[in-house]
Amino acid sequence: MPSETPQAEVGPTGCPHRSGPHSAKGSLEKGSPEDKEAKEPLWIRPDAPSRCTWQLGRPASESPHHHTAPAKSPKILPDILKKIGDTPMVRINKIGKKFGLKCELLAKCEFFNAGGSVKDRISLRMIEDAERDGTLKPGDTIIEPTSGNTGIGLALAAAVRGYRCIIVMPEKMSSEKVDVLRALGAEIVRTPTNARFDSPESHVGVAWRLKNEIPNSHILDQYRNASNPLAHYDTTADEILQQCDGKLDMLVASVGTGGTITGIARKLKEKCPGCRIIGVDPEGSILAEPEELNQTEQTTYEVEGIGYDFIPTVLDRTVVDKWFKSNDEEAFTFARMLIAQEGLLCGGSAGSTVAVAVKAAQELQEGQRCVVILPDSVRNYMTKFLSDRWMLQKGFLKEEDLTEKKPWWWHLRVQELGLSAPLTVLPTITCGHTIEILREKGFDQAPVVDEAGVILGMVTLGNMLSSLLAGKVQPSDQVGKVIYKQFKQIRLTDTLGRLSHILEMDHFALVV
Rank of each mutant, 00 (worst) to 15 (best):
T262L: 01
T13P: 07
F111V: 05
N113L: 06
L105Y: 04
D35L: 05
P138T: 12
Y233F: 10
A130E: 01
D86V: 14
G246Y: 01
I264N: 12
K72M: 03
P33I: 01
G11L: 08
R18M: 07
C275I: 13
S3D: 01
G57R: 12
P33T: 07
A8S: 01
P215N: 01
L56W: 01
L105F: 11
H232S: 10
M126G: 04
T150C: 03
G246C: 03
T13S: 01
P170L: 01
A207L: 01
A130T: 07
Q222R: 01
C272D: 15
T87W: 01
R18D: 15
D35K: 05
P64Y: 01
W208F: 07
R224A: 10
S23G: 06
A157P: 11
E128G: 01
M173Y: 06
F111S: 01
I219T: 06
P46G: 01
P170I: 01
N113G: 09
P59A: 04
S175W: 08
D179L: 07
Y223V: 01
F111G: 06
P16G: 10
G263S: 01
H67P: 01
G246K: 09
K83M: 07
E131V: 09
K36F: 11
R182C: 10
D129V: 09
R224L: 05
A155F: 14
T146D: 04
T262Y: 01
K271V: 09
P2V: 08
A130R: 08
S123V: 04
D249A: 14
L241S: 04
L105D: 01
D129I: 01
G31P: 10
D47L: 01
P229L: 08
K36D: 01
A158C: 01
H22E: 14
I142H: 01
C275R: 06
V160L: 11
D238S: 11
R190L: 06
S63G: 07
F197S: 08
N228V: 01
L220H: 01
I219Y: 06
P49S: 12
C165T: 04
R132C: 11
S61C: 12
V255W: 01
G85F: 07
S227L: 04
K267L: 12
P21N: 11
K119G: 05
L268R: 10
D238F: 08
D249L: 01
E270V: 10
E37H: 08
E34V: 09
E34L: 01
E201Y: 04
S254C: 13
G139F: 10
D133I: 01
S23V: 05
K108F: 01
L105K: 04
E131W: 01
L28N: 15
L220W: 03
P192A: 01
P78H: 15
P78S: 12
S123L: 14
N212D: 12
R18S: 10
D179M: 03
L220C: 05
I143G: 05
H218R: 11
D129Q: 13
S3V: 14
A8P: 01
P70Y: 01
T13R: 01
I95D: 03
A69F: 13
K82T: 01
V204L: 01
I142C: 05
A186Y: 01
T262V: 10
H22Y: 07
R209T: 01
S123C: 04
P88Y: 06
T141E: 01
G116C: 11
P64L: 09
E104W: 03
R266P: 01
H67D: 01
L251T: 01
Q242S: 11
E34F: 10
I261N: 03
P145S: 04
V252A: 07
T135H: 04
I264G: 01
L136F: 08
D140T: 07
Q7A: 09
L248S: 01
W54M: 08
N216M: 01
T260P: 03
A130V: 08
H67A: 07
L77A: 06
P21D: 13
A237W: 01
P273A: 06
I261R: 01
D198W: 05
G26S: 15
R121H: 01
D238Y: 08
A130W: 04
L268K: 06
G162V: 03
R182A: 01
T68M: 01
A231V: 11
R161V: 08
E270Y: 09
K97D: 13
C275L: 06
T146Q: 11
R224H: 11
H65L: 01
D133V: 15
I214S: 01
A155W: 01
T236W: 01
R91K: 13
P74G: 10
G263C: 01
I127A: 10
S32N: 01
S174H: 03
G96D: 08
L154S: 01
H22C: 10
H65M: 07
I166V: 12
E213K: 10
W208E: 07
G31E: 10
A8W: 04
P41L: 12
E37C: 08
T191W: 01
M173E: 01
P46Y: 03
Q55L: 09
I76C: 07
F112E: 08
